[in-house]
Amino acid sequence: MSLNDKILDTMDRIRPFPQVVVKVLHLLEDPDIPASRIMEVVRYDPVITMRLLQVCNSALFGLKRRVESLQQAMIILGSQAMMRLIVAFGALDLLKDPLPGYGLERGELLDHSVACATLSQSLLKELNFPEDHAVFTGAILHDVGKLVLNEYAGEQYWEISRMVDEEGQSAIEAERAVLGVDHAQIGAQLAQRWNLPQSIVLVILKHHESVSPERDPLAVCLVHLANVMCVQLGIGAGTRGLASRPSQDLVQSLGWSPKKLDACLSAFWCELERARSLLNLPSEGRA
């Protein structure tokens, strides 16, 4: 079997993204969709429903009365925050496994994805742009291609690392050169197979490319930026994550200074702690 066939074969074996969440994401493409319509879909997924109710009944909210329905949960969480939790809960089981091919231990990819989603969301808020679900969801799923390529990146671990260390290539360039394909391309293919909205496929596909707000959707730019900022902090950077190339001029074209980025990081940190506790993740990012 050729490497390409093997990769396609692995793609078939990845557990699918929950269909209920895919439906929700399509409904959210219409910004005027009533939340009640979304709840009608979500209640068909018992795991996500249970997790949402568990969050509401946790010590975080300290409520006296038990929350027993999705309607009550929405009132407590707020509809936007609830949508984000639905997406995150849908991805939890998919993203928690260790990926030795990338030097990521159990829980690290999940923590990186949650951090990237939280930061993308707070960058969006910082720019005063309206809610855009491709930002949070795209960020949660941006590295999903690593699930497929882990095995092959593992087999070629030393060659990819050598190209990064000795030839100064970025991790994604080295991966593409050695495997003939990279995790952004494979992730976008997976997202397409799962029938995710095109806006999300694009975020996944372009998260390592050179992007700019003049040419690309805002969600693409923000997830690219948040990803670089997270690996820079060491969150889910693994073996070669820091060998990432941020888009030149992106920050400048958003009208931001380096100091502004520092301020975003400091604000983001407290939000990440909250996101981790909502999702019941360990605070140091490891399971």
Partner: peptide, 16 residues
């Protein structure tokens, strides 16, 4: 220990 950098010449990502 630490102070690593990403691949960037613009100076926007030199926190390390």
């Amino acid at each position: 220990v630490g102070g690593a950098q990403v691949l960037d010449d613009s100076g926007y990502f030199n926190i390390g």
